[in-house]
Each structure stands twice: as C-alpha cells, then as structure tokens.
Amino acid sequence: MEHRAALEDLLVRMADDALIYGHRNSEWTGLAPILEEDIAFSSIAQDKIGHALALYTLLHQLGHPKPDHMAFMRQEHQYRCCHLVELPTQDYAVALMRHALFDYAERVRYEALRESAYKPLAELANKVRGEIKYHVFHANTWLRLLGSEGTDESRARMQAALDLLMPYALGMFEPSPYDDELWRSGIFPGENAIRSRWLDDIVPVLESSGYRVPSIEALEPTVGGRRGYHTEHFQPLLDEMTIVFRLDPDAEW
C-alpha cells in the first residue's frame, strides 16, 4: 500500500489524542460541578474513546496490534498525542476551555477527512463529525454562559484558562514530516491547513463570547507530542490508565 507510513502516523496521532482526551474527560465522572456536566463530560469521554477505538481498529486492519494493546501496552514514547490533551485539569474552567479548543480542531480535522482518499477514514469521518457537532454545541454553551453571559469571576477564570492553554492548543498542529505526502496523496490536507481553518473558526467564537484572544504570532507552540516527547503529566496518566489492563493483558472482559 502506498503512503502507508504517512497514513499510519496520522491515524496514531488522531487515535492517541482521542484516547487521552477521553481519559482526561472521564476523570470528571462523579466530580463535575453539576449533574448535567457530570453526564456531559462522561458522555463526551465515551464518544472520544469510541473514536479512538475506531481509529485503532483501522490501524489493526493495517497490521498494527489489537486496539486494546495499542491503547494500553505501548511505552510512553510510542504515543503521539499532543500536550494539550495530557494536561491534568483540577480547574473546571481549564477543562471547559480545553474542550472548546480541542473540539473546534476535531471538527475541522474530521470535516477535511470526509474527502480523504483513504476511504475507510473518509467513511468514519463522515460519521464522527455528527458527534463532534454535539461536542462543539456543548462547548459553545459554556463559553457563552461563563463569558459574555457570565460574572467577572467566571470570565476571569475562563480567560486565565485560555491564556494558559493557547500555546498548547497551537501544539495540536505540530507539523508532521508526512504533511506534504499526506496532502499530495489526498489523504489529509496537513497540519498547517487545519491550523489556519481552526483559527478562522475559533477566534471569532472566543471574541464574541467575551474573551481576549492572545496574539497568536507572539506565542511559541508547545510541541513534541507528535514525536513521542511528552509532558511530566503523561507517564502518571499512563500508569493509572493502564494498570488494570496490564495485570492480565489476555483476560476476556
């Protein structure tokens, strides 16, 4: 198969983002500030882990290990998620702002992939984008409720979250050595294209919701995740996420 390495790299990046973001969201199960948000974050976690499973299944069909082994048995440096999804969130404002920044990017990514020359991915993207619409819908509600319709305190906390997260959000689009090949082969338009469409979408939404968007050009994106270099938060996350599976990797669940 042509462009196999490029395609696999793309699938691993996307699957790992979905898995780790889903896991971080699931940490709010039972702890979110109100019951509806508890359900929302748990549901979004379930959706994301479902997307990860679908992507790992495509990888399995290309000869990679089984989805559960991809999710739970790799070493830290083999994961390709971006740093944004690794960050722990003790502050709900940070969780909500990350949700908005990440899901707007997911929307752009899956929208573009509907046209992918790799048909199984195009079919999956066509399905996933409907679910992402609900995630973006949820993010929009809270951006507005805590921003333009919020209090001084809610706006300040969301603004601090945005200022903290923007360099990490830009790191979602860390260039890949395969970008050019993916673009030429019609599989994926490349990270630069996705980044620019994302900025076109997210900046007006943030501004109309009452936030100041930091000067994008002045920021240094937080990169490394796509090459297997992770934050200090990632190994502890893996330890916790994988502990049960690793007790008996061949168990039937």
């Binding site: 509806e36 359900i39 929302a40 748990s42 549901s43 379930q46 479902g50 949820h138």
Partner: peptide
C-alpha cells in the same frame, strides 16, 4: 433541554 447528553450516548 436540560442536557444534550443523557444516560446513553
């Protein structure tokens, strides 16, 4: 609408 998310996806 109380929540766009419920007991199942």
């Amino acid at each position: 609408l109380r929540s766009p998310f419920g007991p199942a996806l």
